[in-house]
Amino acid sequence: MMNKRMFTLLLVASLSAAVPALAAQQGYRPDVAVQLPAEVWDAGNASRNAAPPCHRCCIYNDQNYSEGAVVTVKNVVLQCVRDPNVLSTGGDDLHWQRLDK
């Protein structure tokens, strides 16, 4: 699953390549330079170094957690548990549940 920031960076990179080509086909050559952050050029390397997608986990702070994992966020204790209301064999049945202290 691609996060929103990575999707936005890839969209900007794609559009910056497609728009000039389309303009050239129409005979229009504007003198415009689009400055892109270095993150756009390094996006391919970042995805190769990222953890593989988790098909059965809870995600917090870009980290994968398996069923039963417990994290504390601002004095709130959360546990990664199976959702009893979801019938799934694909692994999309885990979510964070707040634990009472």
Score class of each variant (00 low, 15 high):
Q35P: 13
C54D: 05
V34T: 09
G27N: 02
L36A: 08
I59C: 00
N45E: 13
Y28H: 10
R29M: 05
A46N: 06
P30Q: 01
N45L: 12
Q63V: 11
N49Y: 01
C54T: 05
N61I: 03
N45Q: 12
A23V: 00
W41R: 14
D42S: 13
Q26S: 12
A51I: 01
A33Q: 11
R48E: 09
A46C: 00
P37W: 10
V32L: 11
S47W: 04
D31T: 07
Y60E: 10
A43D: 06
R56H: 15
D62S: 14
P52A: 10
D62Y: 06
A46S: 09
V40N: 02
V34P: 11
D62Q: 12
C54P: 08
I59V: 14
V32F: 07
Q63E: 11
N61P: 04
L36K: 09
V32Q: 07
Y60N: 12
S47C: 05
R48F: 05
H55L: 09
G27H: 09
D31R: 13
A46E: 13
Q35W: 14
P30M: 02
P53N: 07
Y28T: 06
C54I: 06
Q25A: 03
A24R: 15
N61F: 02
I59K: 02
A51D: 11
A38K: 12
A43W: 01
W41A: 14
R48N: 02
S47R: 12
V34F: 11
Q25K: 14
V40P: 07
N61Y: 03
C57T: 11
N49K: 11
G27K: 07
V40G: 13
R48G: 01
A33R: 14
A24L: 03
P30C: 03
A51G: 04
C57E: 02
A33G: 04
A23G: 02
Q63I: 06
A38Q: 15
P30G: 08
A33F: 08
P52D: 06
R48V: 09
N45V: 03
V34K: 01
N61S: 13
C57V: 07
N61H: 06
A24H: 13
S47F: 07
D62E: 15
Q35R: 15
G44N: 06
D42W: 05
Q35T: 12
E39D: 15
A51R: 08
P53K: 05
Y60P: 01
V32H: 07
V32A: 04
A23T: 15
Q26D: 02
A24V: 05
Y28V: 10
D42Y: 09
Q26V: 00
V34A: 09
R48Y: 00
C54Q: 05
P53S: 10
R29N: 12
A50I: 00
E39F: 04
A38F: 06
I59N: 06
N45S: 10
R29D: 06
D42Q: 15
E39Q: 14
D31I: 02
P37S: 14
P52Q: 11
Q25Y: 04
Y60T: 03
P30D: 02
V40D: 01
